[in-house]
Simulated scan of single mutants.
Amino acid sequence: MPKLLTEMLKGTLEGIVLATLSGRPAYGYEITAWLREQGFSDIAEGTVYALLVRVEKRGLVDVEKVPSEKGPPRKVYSLNAVGREYLEEFWRTWSFLTERLDQLREGGE
């Protein structure tokens, strides 16, 4: 993955993961696998797990431990009301930024 893409992804990955959880609850590996299917092929599981710990500490997700057939229980994350509000703010900010960047690219003011 090119360095610029990696840097830009760092700033948006939290919103991307929360958007993923807005559709349905998931555990870390599921999220990583889905992101890879969407073309984010170089995202490491450790990056996603660290991000999930951060959003859990910030109260943006609820966590449920679900039994697993292959070892210890899995932590399944779901977006809660606080996380939904945060995600809405993320999308508003994203829209603002993309509009301004489009204006710059087109040479407008």
Rank of each mutant, 00 (worst) to 15 (best):
S78V: 02
G15F: 04
E85D: 11
L87Y: 05
E7M: 09
E109M: 06
G59P: 00
T93L: 13
L4H: 11
R54N: 12
G46T: 10
V76D: 04
R36E: 10
V66D: 07
L87S: 05
A26W: 01
T6Q: 15
L51S: 07
S68K: 04
I31A: 02
R100N: 11
K10A: 12
T98R: 15
E85A: 13
V66Y: 06
Y29R: 15
S41V: 08
R58L: 09
W34T: 10
G28W: 01
T32P: 00
G39F: 06
R105S: 08
M8P: 00
K57Y: 06
I16V: 10
M1L: 08
E99H: 13
S78N: 05
L35F: 06
R92W: 02
D102S: 13
R24E: 12
T98M: 11
L5V: 07
V48C: 03
R92K: 15
G71R: 06
A44M: 07
P73Y: 06
A50C: 02
P73A: 14
G46R: 14
I16E: 01
D62R: 10
L5N: 10
L101T: 09
L60A: 05
D102C: 04
N80G: 02
W94T: 05
S41H: 10
V55N: 05
Y77I: 01
T93D: 08
T6H: 13
E14W: 01
G39I: 03
E89C: 02
T6K: 15
E99W: 03
A81W: 04
D42A: 12
G83Q: 05
L104P: 00
